[in-house]
Amino acid sequence: MSAWIAAAGQALLIALLAPIVTGVTRAVRARLEGRAGGRIAQPWRDIRKLLRKPPTSPEGAGVFFSAAPVVLMSTSLLIAATVPFVSTAGIAGSADLIVVVGLLLLGTVALALAGLDTGTAFGGMGSSREMTIAALVEPTLLLAVFALSTRVGTTNLGVIVAAGASDPAAVFTPASLLAFAALAIATLAETARIPVDNPSTHLELTMVHEAMILEYSGRDLALVEWASAMRLAILLGLLANLFAPWGVATGTTWTAVVIAAAVLTVKMCGLATLLAAAEVYAAKLRLFRVPELLAGSFAMALLAVLTSYILA
């Protein structure tokens, strides 16, 4: 029973933390650009406000449109509950990396179908671009998984993170560094950040993610924004725990879990700050240059696998 509570608690923690992480990126970005910017908790207030408003469906849109936000949210919650963010023990550390990649993709697919279901030019365009990027990110993710799992001989995330936590020196191998770089680029693409996509744009020519969700409003929009924030938090948390697995609890004692949760918060906010700082200094790539970037990350992931073999 306590395993279920731990998993639910972890999902709740990520759900609560995610808008804050997004708030941190926005605040850091605003400061670096010389703006005052909103408060760190502003995304939370937006979500709360939107949740109270009724959702609207465009005429002609069907069940795919209204189901997508819920599916996106449920996949995010499921990943948040089963990935070892806080503890590697029990259900909270039982996820398989390939399943996580599959669930992330399932959420993307739900939104892409919803974009098409609206029957608008924007929805189709965003959906088409999003699937192009997703199709090219998937190989990178799986290859990076390969590189990370050869180290410990399993794709079980709990085992991978626990192995890193017990022997941090083993994390710093050339293979790991290459895999980190590949995963970092994949994270940018997967969460619609610069240079792949611009989260704050509303310009037709550059929109990808925003074009797809243009028709959402009220509660639906709140769910989409919240789930997207959770995906960012999940991927940042994964990066943190895979490549800097300090402080992750290996048991379920209260003190260890509380410390681990605090450490996770710090790590995520740190990564979010780095992400925001990097975004300020980078420009968005033209859509048809994005595949080159993703091919680069794919090559790095392949190199990571090969080095993990040669230096094994």
Partner: peptide, 9 residues
């Protein structure tokens, strides 16, 4: 939440 509404796209 509140009930879903229909609107033009």
């Amino acid at each position: 939440g509140k009930a879903r509404r229909r609107a033009i796209a």
